[in-house]
């Protein structure tokens, strides 16, 4: 009897252990694949920093390029149109709100860009040869900050498209009114 009870216990124990091993092996393989090769970061430290410096320079050019267009669209088009509409008693709440949203989005874009560039500057100042893991963690943070800048750009483009749509609708409305006035004038004749 003791032989059977002990054997049963041993069998259950072996089964549990083998189950645990079988379940954990695939997971460890997955984690092994996902783990970043920090030795690569350490070996190619200078090359990586060179690429990051190029990205920093290019991003700066793009920021100025886009910034100047956003500034022009906001001040020389959107704002002026709203002023002209007010002067002609045709002010549209949607267009005025759009102007405010565009101004806010533009300011946020600049703020996010500065934050991103500060992060990139700190990253470039780090020692990726001796501390590759820390460097990579900082790189992940900079990636998130860059994604925020990208979100800002998309937001501004959406606001400009919305503005164009609203102006298009106003144009149709005014075109319709003009046609009605012309018909009335012909009717009177």
């Amino acid at each position: 009897m003791w032989y059977n009870k002990d054997m049963k216990k041993i069998a259950v124990f072996v089964l549990l252990v083998s189950l645990c091993i079988q379940v954990s092996l695939p997971f460890s393989a997955v984690f092994a694949e996902e783990r970043t090769d920090f030795s690569g970061v350490s070996e190619r430290c200078e090359e990586i920093k060179g690429i990051l410096k190029n990205v920093q320079r290019e991003d700066s050019k793009i920021r100025v390029y886009l910034g100047s267009y956003y500034e022009k669209i906001l001040t020389k088009y959107v704002t002026r149109l709203n002023l002209r509409l007010v002067e002609n008693n045709l002010s549209q709440t949607g267009l005025i709100e759009g102007q405010a949203e565009l101004a806010t989005a533009r300011a946020k874009f600049v703020e996010d860009f500065v934050k991103y560039q500060q992060g990139l500057e700190e990253l470039l100042a780090m020692n990726c040869k001796d501390e590759p893991e820390k460097f990579y963690q900082e790189l992940e943070k900079v990636r998130e900050e860059r994604a925020e800048v990208r979100k800002g750009v998309v937001e501004i483009e959406n606001l400009i498209t919305k503005h164009q749509k609203m102006v298009g609708e106003l144009r149709i409305k005014l075109g319709g009114k003009n046609a009605t006035k012309a018909n009335e004038a012909e009717g009177e004749k």
Binding site: Y77, R80, Q164, G168, L174, N178
Partner: peptide, 25 residues
Amino acid sequence: SEFSEKGEVSAEVLEEYLEKLEDEV
């Protein structure tokens, strides 16, 4: 040539505005 804040507003003016704005976009 940019859009002026003074002047009348009509369908034609808005058409011109949208064309100039599209160039910037």
